[in-house]
Design a protein around this nucleic acid. Sequence first.
DNA 1: CAAGTGGCATATGCAAATCGTATTGCAAAA
DNA 2: TTTTGCAATACGATTTGCATATGCCACTTG
Lengths: 293, 293
Amino acid sequence: MPLELRALRYFVAVAEARHITRAARQLGMAQPPLSQQIKALEQHLGAALFRRLPRGVELTPAGEALLDDARALIQQAEQAEVRVRRVARGELGRLRLGMINSAPFHPLIPGVIREFRRRYPTVALSLDEGTTPLLAAAVLARRMDAAFIRPLLAPEEGLVETPLMSEDLVIALPSGHPLSRRRRLPLMALSLEPFVLFPRAVGAGLHEEILRACHRVGFLPRVVQETSQVTSIVNLVAAGMGVSIVPASMQQAQIDGVSYRAIAGAVPKARLSLIHRADEADAAQIQNLLQLV
Amino acid sequence: MPLELRALRYFVAVAEARHITRAARQLGMAQPPLSQQIKALEQHLGAALFRRLPRGVELTPAGEALLDDARALIQQAEQAEVRVRRVARGELGRLRLGMINSAPFHPLIPGVIREFRRRYPTVALSLDEGTTPLLAAAVLARRMDAAFIRPLLAPEEGLVETPLMSEDLVIALPSGHPLSRRRRLPLMALSLEPFVLFPRAVGAGLHEEILRACHRVGFLPRVVQETSQVTSIVNLVAAGMGVSIVPASMQQAQIDGVSYRAIAGAVPKARLSLIHRADEADAAQIQNLLQLV
DNA sequence: CAAGTGGCATATGCAAATCGTATTGCAAAA
DNA sequence: TTTTGCAATACGATTTGCATATGCCACTTG
């Protein structure tokens, strides 16, 4: 029958009160059971912890030695308790977050991240960029806890996808391009232009969305250059490599040599989702994050 | 109802086995009560510690966090236990020892101290010198735990005195003193000599013993110099200040200018005692020390 | 000096926590 | 679909822990 914290708590109370009766009162119990517990503890340890005096008790050297350890143990147990609760509430721990390249340009994302850091400053937050499929794979493989991505083509086993918002897509033209004279352009105006787009392999929902929109108005974009990062697409457009269709929030990135024009007619949307593992749907960090978005 | 170590031991077992059933076997109990205990712990902490899988269980982040703390707590509790036992057995702790100035010259004392250090190397041993009354007061005031002293004139309340041994007293003469031509001297031969002795106030049993011996043969020593330390007495004798009567073991101290002569007739004795507090008669250090002497 | 007081130990009875046995439930593997 | 492995639930049995009552000892007080 091993040592229990209860015994140590009783012991400390008696050691501090130097009286069994008084300690019992402070503990909210009667004196006899406390005497028993102390006796049992002494028997268990095979050592006298107190000297019984006519007027109270006194610590023996062995009791002296135990007192320090007992206090430390009790306090550490309490600390362990609060630590677990904090981890459970997500106030402590870590959150490995991923995001696609274009996410930081939409004001929502930096806002959420800033707010998370403000609310849970003790959570170690790590941030990485990647493409939608890479991020999904990382979350699934537990190398990441959650990620802001473009919608997945097919629902992934073991992943939960939470749609966050959708924003308009806009046309990106090299500055001075003939089409840039008009404020709004129908998609069809791009039918003969060279395109800079995501590679099909990488392209998750967004690539699909763009192709579908073009298809709807009756053409297939002629892709002259592929790159997996939105920022690179914009840079290639600036270099005059071609035109592209990007999320409206990319206009936040003030890049010389690129003009953005709204799409006339049916405007295709860029949707953003947050994914996390299904088996961590109740993990506190995830919950806290979801609450913010 | 606070946290108990039992719960943590159960938790660690389950966390390490990753199975409740297997952990229960290792703990020597059935599976249902263990399930209950784990559930109760989770409820108490307000946090899920395990994810129940079809094939065993898995730690949640909160459980992960608790595991380290739980292991540490259990181990520290065990360490505290062995520490108390060791203190109780006197293998750990401290022993503040005192001795009179002449004690180190009797082979018994250094022998005992050396043996104590060999047997209980983890006991912090401190050593101080002093006069018999000062040492008795220090022990009584708990500034010291035990002391080698000359016998007390009267038994002191709260102190236990253990007689250790007695040795002959011998006469100390300055070298070349006329009396030093004879190997043995009757005490009476010193009746007209100047004496170097302890001050009466300091003098406990030994001072008394010397005076009584002189009184027995019919003279009162003429004290020309007083000092409370035996070594000083011997030095003063060496300086030709007078003669003295000292424990035979002082011959161990090879001091130039002093000759020792045995006493003819009834030889007075120098007795040595060990004292310690009565209320610590059962203290392990004291017991160990007494066992050695 | 005798009665009173303070404080710890022991005895006994009860209530609650813990455990074991039996059973159910559920999801993956055969 | 059946089987299997493992956790959850139900309930009776046992142990543990606490409270009340009492005894004993040392010191205090009238």
